[in-house]
């Protein structure tokens, strides 16, 4: 069942998503209420990136999925042509 490395990778994925979740929450929800001179602002990028990065990531994901599907379908077409 769950072998050692698989379990580590799974835990890693969960940990990574938790870290991203807390960081992003702090960035977007808490930070606007903290004084703009506070040192904590040094640890975060300008807020515009809070929109830009997820948007870019979403586009990349869609692009990747799109390329994958077209690749598979094109390959399929070629295969059926060959067999005919």
């Amino acid at each position: 069942m769950a072998t050692g490395t698989d379990q580590v990778v799974g835990l890693g994925l969960v940990a990574l998503s938790l870290i991203i979740f807390t960081y992003y929450t702090a960035w977007v929800i808490l930070l606007p209420f903290i004084d703009s001179q506070h040192v904590i602002h040094k640890y975060f990028l300008p807020r515009a990136y809070a929109i830009a990065i997820p948007l870019a990531a979403g586009h990349l994901l869609l692009l990747f999925v799109g390329i994958f599907i077209t690749y598979v379908m094109l390959k399929n077409q070629n295969d059926t042509k060959k067999t005919q």
Partner: peptide, 9 residues
């Protein structure tokens, strides 16, 4: 493979 994934989707 890719085929299975696409037909699943």
């Amino acid at each position: 493979g890719g085929n299975e994934i696409v037909s699943f989707l």
